[in-house]
């Protein structure tokens, strides 16, 4: 279990000596076992922030730290972080089942590994395809496999970078519901990036709006799961977010 504290984070990239300011002055506190959605246009720095959180990139300034919930005793602290990329990024030489077991390669207890993998194969309805190679399955299944792989790794904090972006509307809807179920069942901290405001409001307990490398607003979504996208509360939050984005774009 862990939360993430992001304080005054800047990130610059340099291409041919030219600096690009991908993120500036980012401050977010992601509570332990909360579901935070980040929305913003493409190029607004969402992926960069996730890469900073999971250590694939280093921040130029500022600090990213993990904290444990106060009720946890000191000796069972853990802050395993992992990410589900925008693309499934499955190993083409491994079957669905082997791909899911991939992060557990070092685990000595193989019974435990196959138990874990089977559990998620069931949960994500992939059992039938467990022996298929990535080239033989659909995009939705590939993304479910990628999700299953990360879940098998059992991180405390799961980062997701537009994982449903490439899927058709039906598959997408179903996976959104699955994701909420997994969130409630497994008690993980989830940071979910999307450019779809509907998706952000459907999933997030808090929606953080990005614009050109800055945060323009944190919007809490106090609606119980499962949410109805046509309910008044839902539409109200959605309207608020859209107007904030619009206001920013008319500046």
């Amino acid at each position: 279990m862990a939360g993430v504290k992001i304080q005054k984070v800047d990130k610059n990239f340099y291409i041919n000596g030219q600096g690009i300011n991908a993120l500036s002055d980012i401050n977010i506190t992601i509570e332990d076992r909360s579901f935070v959605a980040l929305v913003g246009k493409s190029g607004s720095g969402k992926t960069t922030l996730l890469k900073l959180i999971c250590g694939l990139e280093k921040s130029t300034r500022g600090e990213i730290s993990f904290f444990q919930p106060p009720e946890k005793s000191m000796n069972c602290q853990s802050n395993k972080v992992s990410i589900v990329f925008q693309e499934p990024r499955l190993m083409p030489w491994l079957t669905v089942e082997q791909n899911m077991a991939f992060p557990l390669i070092k685990e000595k207890n193989r019974d435990l590994v196959s138990q874990t993998v089977n559990h998620y194969l069931d949960l994500l309805v992939l059992k039938e395809f467990k022996n298929a190679y990535p080239s033989q399955i659909s995009g939705g299944m590939a993304q479910r496999t990628a999700l299953g792989r990360t879940l098998c790794y059992d991180p405390d904090v799961i980062l997701m970078d537009e994982p449903l972006g490439a899927l058709d509307a039906f598959t997408r809807k179903k996976l959104q519901v699955d994701l909420i179920n997994i969130f409630q069942l497994k008690k993980k901290t989830i940071v979910f990036v999307t450019h779809d405001v509907d998706e952000a409001v459907f999933l997030g307990q808090k929606v953080v709006i990005f614009e050109a490398g800055k945060i323009i607003e944190h919007v809490p979504v106090n609606i119980d799961y499962p949410r109805d996208p046509l309910s008044r509360d839902f539409l109200q939050v959605k309207k608020k977010i859209l107007s904030l984005i619009e206001a920013e774009n008319f500046h």
């Binding site: 694939l56 992992s82 990410i83 990329f85 990024r89 190993m91 992060p103 390669i105």
Partner: peptide, 25 residues
């Protein structure tokens, strides 16, 4: 490189990345 990042994300050491990702690919 994207597959190598997957190794990074799961905490693989260089040796594991070589044997588990680079060689099979």
């Amino acid at each position: 490189k994207q597959l190598l990042e997957v190794g990074d994300v799961f905490g693989f050491k260089d040796r594991d990345k070589f044997l588990r990702i680079i060689m099979p690919s």
